[in-house]
Design a binder for these strands. Structure first.
Ligand SMILES: NC(=O)c1ccc[n+]([C@@H]2O[C@H](COP(=O)([O-])OP(=O)(O)OC[C@H]3O[C@@H](n4cnc5c(N)ncnc54)[C@H](O)[C@@H]3O)[C@@H](O)[C@H]2O)c1
Ligand SMILES: NC(=O)c1ccc[n+]([C@@H]2O[C@H](COP(=O)([O-])OP(=O)(O)OC[C@H]3O[C@@H](n4cnc5c(N)ncnc54)[C@H](O)[C@@H]3O)[C@@H](O)[C@H]2O)c1
Lengths: 256, 256
DNA sequence: CGCGATTTGTGCACGTCTTCACAAGCGCCT
DNA sequence: AGGCGCTTGTGAAGACGTGCACAAATCGCG
């Protein structure tokens, strides 16, 4: 087929190569593939088929192949993918060839856990600074890092090239912290506070919200419960009537 | 249009009412709306327009209206939505009318933070048990709860009706813990360990993986860097972004 | 060297999600 | 009562994501 030209990570430094512009859904899965690949590499595998890798990553194999095809053609038909090469490619695309510096703001309950987490280091990141607004926390040492005052952010940013800011403060402080991070040039933020952040264009925000995850699970529990609670009514088991309403409309096709 | 009949939460107990079967994407956003609504209620608002609520939740207003329309017709044209009513409806649909019991397995670094988190209680959940495999942790008291041994899970499950299991153990132990949870009847799991869990059909698993979030941010950093490094190609420098982002939301620049 | 077994890469069809745009409905004011 | 401005609810269109199914490519072996 049309020969691919994707630049790849190849040692070649110098010019900034073009990045294939990947579908968001693919980007979100690459880290999963990467983790699975590292496991395979550790287990001594040199190559892996799309079937094998997709099973390890918990996805459909066709989807995996399509995802990888966006990066270029790095598999060998009849054989599979070279594990080491694929790791290199994915890490390149994800921008993990440089160890990115992370600033963690809010060293409370959650912040402490994050600060002590070795998953940062092992996956391409480096905690460059711990920051908090509480004077009584400033100066505390965690894992070899000293907590500094959040107002020192400009100084920290001057010392290090901060790539990502992590917000682990109460929701009430999150927007202000985000503003401070943006002010010193941070363009990627991971927000643990349960609130919406407003940031300028060009700044990416991702959020992790425990309560949302639980509530989504709760919904499915609720749904499962209401289904099993019904007597097995033929095919369409969803017809139980509420208080006393006409069972009208709703285009939703129910049942099988 | 055709009048809606969605059962809703209305005090009427007794029969199990039908749940509208919502699109997954909608389910994932309802918790956000709920949070925004609580904020609005606390601020004294009695009604809110789709425009106002969508701004507070950080989404497109048309999307919000469509999402809410799946629940039934709870707005008033020309006026907006009744905040209290909408809260009630969403909480009903999400199954939050009953406070669900959560079992937290793995009381280490992260587990401690979770155990001490008040966001559980304030959002409709209750930590029913803390469990760990390490004998030296068993017996420790956190926030009024005593850590029990993970092998006591069957006993715990017999005492309480566990709705959700949270796994905060190392990845190597996660699958085994998941099996134990499933064995005692848990059908919803929130997994913090960076690994794929395999569970029987009917069991829902959601995962939270810090490294994945960071790596996705890293990708965008990488992309942004390679773009700005390029000579201004064409006028539209900032148009790169497509419109919609997948279910696992990413918020890109909101606000002004 | 040719053949069959294997596995990738992808065209295509289908389902889901997003967004626009607007008619229908509601409250209020005159 | 009637009209006006505001807001919801939704049809339709398009963007996006998924998964099947298969041709093309590669390897190993006789
Ligand atoms: N603890 C958890 O398990 C958990 C889980 C999910 C989400 N969260 C969220 O994470 C956030 C932190 O939770 P926590 O339990 O660690 O709370 P916490 O109160 O223990 O810690 C918050 C820390 O932020 C600091 N802080 C406050 N304002 C600040 C500011 N303007 N600048 C810098 N630092 C500031 C405080 O001094 C404190 O150290 C909250 O938004 C919470 O909702 C926590
Ligand atoms: N610490 C963080 O900030 C953080 C962030 C994201 C993800 N994670 C992930 O969360 C998990 C826990 O991280 P941590 O830092 O708390 O680790 P940790 O080692 O501090 O704690 C793990 C706990 O699990 C317990 N455990 C081990 N095997 C068990 C079993 N079979 N049954 C029950 N309990 C068992 C251990 O005794 C320990 O108390 C890890 O998978 C980690 O990758 C941690």
């Amino acid at each position: 087929m049309s020969q691919h030209r994707h630049p790849g990570a190849p040692g070649r430094a110098g010019a900034v190569p073009t990045l294939p512009d990947l579908p968001e859904a693919t980007v979100a899965r690459l880290p999963e593939y990467l983790r699975a690949l590292h496991n395979l590499a550790d287990a001594g595998h040199e190559t892996v088929s799309s079937e094998g890798l997709s099973a390890a990553a918990g996805v459909n194999s066709a989807k995996l192949r399509k995802d990888l095809s966006h990066l270029g053609s790095y598999g060998t038909r009849g054989v599979g993918y070279d594990v080491a090469l694929l790791i290199e490619q994915i890490e390149y695309v994800l921008g993990l060839t440089q160890r990115r510096a992370v600033a963690l703001v809010g060293v409370g309950n959650l912040g402490h856990a994050l600060a002590g987490y070795d998953g940062f280091a092992s996956r391409g990141f480096r905690i460059a600074a711990l920051l908090d607004a509480d004077p009584s926390r400033v100066g505390e040492e965690i894992n070899g890092l000293v907590v500094r005052h959040v107002d020192d952010l400009p100084t920290v940013a001057a010392e290090e090239s901060l790539a990502i800011g992590v917000i682990a403060t109460p929701a009430a402080a999150a927007q202000q912290v985000a503003d401070q991070l943006v002010a010193v040039g941070v363009t990627s933020i991971l927000n643990f506070a349960p609130c919406v952040l407003s940031v300028p264009e060009g700044v990416d925000v991702r959020k992790v919200d425990l309560a949302i995850e639980l509530q989504i699970l709760s919904f499915h529990e609720h749904r499962k419960a209401s289904l099993t609670a019904l007597p097995a009514t033929g095919g369409t088991a969803l017809t139980a009537l509420p208080g006393g309403f006409a069972a009208t409309d709703t285009q939703e096709a129910i049942g099988t």
